[in-house]
Design a binder for these strands. Structure first.
Lengths: 119, 119
DNA sequence: CTCGTTTCTTACTTAAGGTAAGTATAGGTC
DNA sequence: GACCTATACTTACCTTAAGTAAGAAACGAG
């Protein structure tokens, strides 16, 4: 509620001359764009994967964050958790998760066409 | 360098059975997916925009973060800063920035097809 | 039964984000 | 020409999220 005060007066003065940032898109980009989430998704788009396999395939991702991100993605119905036994767990994308493929591929194509310089 | 140690032994044991998360894509998703960046981009894709206009169109985005994100996007050659006079400034996407449109549209389509529940 | 592996969890430190206020420049008002 | 408002930031401070390290529970191998 804080930034609103900075902007409040302006927002009232500015009429709807232009489309405001769509709320659904905003929520999506804040979730999918969260740190590590994009990397986890591209790995899972290649097929179901064990916890530790995802960790191996995403450099510098710690167990703690991987566990946290997986829980978030599961809570949003993007990945499905399949416990083989209490020790072995497999994660797979749901239909909702697989529907992200075009977006991921488009971003990947952009990344390869316009590589980022330093990091 | 920290999480690497957690994973080091495993990474050595696991051969390249499956494609690892592509570095270029990873850098791109970490930049574009950064908080507020996606929202700023969708606003600028609609056309060049003043600093305060972007602020009006992205709810709850503070001046401080808008300034920070704009600097980052400019540093990566995604937006171009045009100072009309010392007080008035306009931001526009570069060709590299406009090339993000398919990715943004794909994510927007996903967001509208599979709305996110709570937030 | 001890050892190693896997999937987390808890406790703690550091980096990023959020809030509030201030700064510099320009233009307008009186 | 002192005073006010608007714009595009900047600085200082505090809170939340990310990163590090260590360990716990559930098996399976030997």
């Amino acid at each position: 509620m804080g930034a609103a005060s900075t902007r409040q007066s302006r927002a009232e003065l500015a009429p709807h001359r232009r489309q405001a940032c769509c709320a659904l898109y905003h929520q999506a980009v804040e979730l999918v764009g969260k740190r590590w989430t994009g990397a986890i998704l591209i790995v899972l788009l290649d097929g179901p994967c064990r916890f530790s396999e995802v960790g191996e395939l995403v450099p510098d991702l710690s167990d703690r964050l991987l566990s946290e991100r997986m829980k978030e993605l599961e809570a949003h119905g993007i990945v499905e958790r399949r416990a083989i036994d209490p020790v072995r767990v497999e994660y797979a994308l749901t239909a909702k998760g697989r529907a992200l493929e075009p977006a991921v591929n488009a971003l990947k194509a952009w990344a390869e066409a316009f590589p980022i310089s330093h990091g």
